[in-house]
Design a protein around this nucleic acid. Structure first.
Length: 512
DNA sequence: GTAGGGTTAG
């Protein structure tokens, strides 16, 4: 009989590892792990698929163990595949055959993996089939199922599952209660969450700061910030002493209703208590000031962080940048952007787009900003096809205003090559600019480009080009252009010049 | 020696 590891290899090899489904599940597992467990564990399946999540792990599930990872991964994959064709009988056969899945512990691992992979219906059906394996759910199984119902947004069922577990004499630990309380709070059912918290006390649990923090956040979420503040103050001096999370939750609540000043006072209190404020706490304040229309004070928090030996992260900077742009503090935003680039921090591409457009607009008054705008724009392009149509157009038009027609012409071509259909006015500006510089051929090719991208050149562009061609004596070309305008339903004001004899030019020499 | 809990932006 092959060893379990060999079996797992066999199983995995029988699956197509690179199928989208497989990749999707692995990705889902990784993503939900990050969100569900506050980055404590990583289901990094890097043995076969490199994960972007690289945190160290403290999980007891021991996903570091290759065999366990493979076993669960293979099973989740196979079961998911079967589920889509409703082959539940086959699913049970798979589980029955697998010598690794015989005890309730084995199933708990599988059920938890399914919850993390968001395969909740499969989780429920396997749970329902446990008796057919002669297995009885234990305390851990019940906790996992409570979580499963929470993830499914079926809070009443989650509460029933908790009551069932308690009724059977199990004593789920505080973490299980916290999951339920948190889910209720996230859905705005704070009163129900409070009931569960109180039920903890009745059942002999001491409660937990984590659960209390969920209530603080829940109260803030439903607009009861003062109640949250009161609860926070009430925690002081009790066995559930507030921690940095508690304060952050309430500060966030205050910031969201325009009370950033009070949130800042809480920061002082935190420091006074000897707690170390976290980067999240500062980021909350930045967001508060930015919302309130006080973006410069938000930016000042970056300095405050440094005073507290807290290193601002990507969120800090992006939040400051967003606030400054929102309230049109363009120069300050540029400063923060440059600082971020210098620090190697990843700037949100949408913010880069906004910054580039704002700088373009400002460059009319202050020419030097055009280069800054172009630098931001170029940096955006390095990120891949992320530049939106509007940013392209604003950039091209600003380049025209700044008389940088080479770049305008090249960027317009690039835009069309990427499949965008720029507005006719963008072409007009480039065509007029090129004509003014005597670059008639480039102007003509810009018009051809516009036509090729499905647009109709404007009368003003035709007029300008026909005028230039007339002046250069390229009368055949002017006539062609005039003719193509008429075909498109545009009647230029300027007509192609006849030659000196009043005859039509013969088809010779230059072709447009 | 079964899993797993709370905070920030866009």
């Amino acid at each position: 009989m092959p060893s379990s590891i060999a079996t797992c290899y066999h199983v995995l090899q029988s699956c197509t590892l690179n199928t989208p489904l497989f990749t999707d599940i692995v990705t889902k597992i990784n993503i939900s792990t990050a969100s569900i467990r506050a980055r404590k564990i990583s289901l990094s399946l890097s043995a076969t698929y490199p994960s972007p999540i690289t945190q160290t792990t403290t999980n007891d599930l021991n996903f570091e163990d290759r065999a366990t990872r493979f076993r669960i991964k293979g099973l989740v994959h196979r079961i998911t595949t079967l589920s889509s064709s409703n082959s539940k009988t086959q699913m049970l056969q798979i589980l029955e055959k697998d010598p690794e899945f015989q005890t309730i512990s084995d199933f708990n691992l599988l059920l938890m993996a399914l919850v993390i992979a968001q395969e909740l219906d499969i989780c429920l059906s396997i749970f329902a089939k446990l008796p057919s394996f002669q297995l009885v759910p234990d305390c851990c199984t019940h906790s996992i199922m409570i979580r499963c119902h929470c993830e499914k947004n079926d809070m009443d069922e989650a509460k029933r599952a908790l009551d069932t577990a308690l009724g059977k004499g199990f004593r789920p630990d505080a973490a299980t209660f916290t999951v339920l309380i948190n889910s209720l709070c996230k859905r705005g059912r704070v009163n129900k969450a409070r009931e569960v918290f109180e039920a903890m006390g009745r059942n002999g649990y001491k409660g937990s700061v984590q659960a209390k923090n969920c209530l603080l956040k829940g109260l803030s979420y439903v607009g009861k910030v003062d109640e949250a503040l009161e609860m926070l103050m009430g925690m002081k001096g009790t066995s559930l002493e507030p921690d940095v999370y508690s304060y952050t939750a309430v500060m966030d609540g205050l910031c969201k209703v325009g009370r950033s000043g009070e949130a800042m006072e809480l920061l002082d209190e935190v420091v006074g208590m000897g707690l170390v404020p976290s980067v999240v706490m500062f980021n909350t304040l930045i967001q508060g000031y930015s919302r309130e229309g006080r973006p410069m004070e938000g930016a000042a928090v970056l300095e405050l962080m440094k005073e507290h030996e807290c290193v601002p992260d990507c969120v800090s900077h992006n939040t400051v940048l967003h606030g400054l742009l929102k309230w049109n503090e363009v120069l300050a935003a540029l400063g923060v952007y440059k600082e971020m680039v210098g620090l190697g921090l990843k700037v949100d591409v949408r913010l880069m787009g906004t910054l580039a457009r704002r700088l373009c607009k400002r460059s009319r008054r202050k020419n030097s900003l055009l280069q800054d705008a172009y630098d931001v724009f170029e940096k955006m392009k390095e990120r891949g096809p992320v530049v939106d149509q509007r940013t392209f157009e604003v950039m091209i038009q600003a380049l025209c205003v700044g008389k940088r027609f080479d770049q305008a012409f090249a960027t317009l071509n690039e835009m069309v090559r990427l499949g965008y259909s720029p507005e006719a006015i963008t072409f007009d500006k480039v065509i007029l600019g090129l004509c003014a510089r005597g670059r008639v051929d480039d102007a003509v090719s810009t018009m051809v480009l516009l036509h090729a991208s499905g647009g109709i050149p404007s009368k003003i562009s035709y007029d300008m080009l026909i005028k230039e061609l007339n002046e250069e004596g390229r009368l055949f070309c002017a006539r062609n252009l005039f003719g193509s305008a008429l075909k498109l339903g545009v009647v230029p004001n300027r007509e192609p010049r006849l030659n000196v004899m009043g005859w039509e030019e013969p088809q010779v020499t230059r072709i447009c």
